[in-house]
Design a protein around this nucleic acid. Structure first.
Length: 289
DNA sequence: CAAGTGCCTTTATC
DNA sequence: AGATAAAGGCACT
């Protein structure tokens, strides 16, 4: 199945899938392989054509955020030179619309880990607790259901490399399973209310909540602040925090109050697409030499 | 190659 | 309220 991309609607599949938004896509040759909606599939891009196998076009459009008006978003977040450079470097990077359950567990696991390790953990978790499916004569694993993780032992989860996060994943899975909670319904709530709901889950703090809101619940104003974004803000936007800038060090983690200030700055400064600004700054800072 | 540092932070405890 | 420690282990230098 092929999809023609219009030139005023840029997509760069490699940027979008490669590092750090979703953790279960792997590139082999020209094709990106992944599992979505319990089904293995593959995608590739050749300039302005997107080709995909074993996944519906409606879903893939939604998943890749192809309905987001990127030129309009760029116009809104281009507030300064630094942001302009980040946009130039990563034009076509899109915010994914991931499946909320997988996204929530992924980011609970992602705390205080690097991307390579996160990928490994989520692969192990899927291998152990997901369902095997075969695609092109190769094995893939679906992301485990809440029930399965709720019934898993802490030590079984920990063996996937989760460490102390195993307990958080277990408790969150139990809560979701027990109440049969539909995370997708949070899409209909405003940002603040959806965030408050997410914070009830064990292992979910402000940063994890913002990631889930941005990457799976369509809240483009969410502005997650991790170590990299903290660095970016202190480097380029410190003038907006006259007092705070002295107290925040590269080593120490942010207090809730400090987190709230930096995240709010992002929303106020960049506007309703602050999340896009965040993601571009994140990749720009990480890949810079 | 060993050892040290850092990691898309949160929770528990003081 | 606010600071501080601990967490479990992998990846990178």
């Amino acid at each position: 199945m092929k999809l023609k991309l219009s030139t005023d609607c840029p997509l760069n599949l490699d940027f979008t899938l490669c590092c750090g938004q979703a953790f279960r896509w792997n590139k082999q040759g020209e094709w990106w392989y992944g599992v979505v909606k319990g089904r293995a599939c593959k995608l590739r891009q050749a300039e302005n054509t997107l080709e995909f196998v074993n996944v519906e076009s409606g879903f893939i459009k939604e998943y890749l955020g192809l309905d987001d008006d990127l030129p309009e978003i760029f116009a809104q977040i281009s507030k300064d030179e630094n942001m302009g450079l980040a946009i130039k470097a990563f034009s076509g990077l899109r915010i994914l619309h991931q499946e909320p359950w997988e996204c929530l567990i992924s980011y609970i696991c992602a705390t205080y880990k690097n991307i390579a390790a996160i990928k490994r953990m989520l692969h192990e978790l899927s291998k152990k607790f997901g369902e095997k499916t075969v695609f092109e004569e190769r094995h893939f694993f679906t992301f485990p259901k809440a029930e399965k993780l709720a019934k898993a032992s802490i030590s079984g989860l920990a063996k996937c490399g989760l460490g102390y996060r195993a307990k958080y994943v277990s408790e969150t899975a139990k809560m979701i399973h027990r109440t049969d909670f539909d995370l997708g319904c949070l899409k209909r709530l405003p940002y603040d209310e959806a965030k408050r709901e997410l914070l009830h889950f064990h292992g979910v703090g402000p940063k994890v909540a913002d990631c889930v809101l941005l990457f799976s619940l369509g809240k483009t104003e969410a502005f997650p602040v991790d170590v990299w974004i903290k660095r970016v803000i202190m480097r380029y936007y410190a003038e907006y925090f006259p007092k705070l800038a002295e107290r925040i060090s590269d080593k120490k983690s942010l207090t809730d109050r400090e987190y709230a200030k930096l995240s709010r700055f992002g929303r106020d400064y960049f506007g309703k697409y602050a999340g896009y600004a965040q993601e571009y700054l994140y990749h720009y800072e990480r890949t810079k030499v």
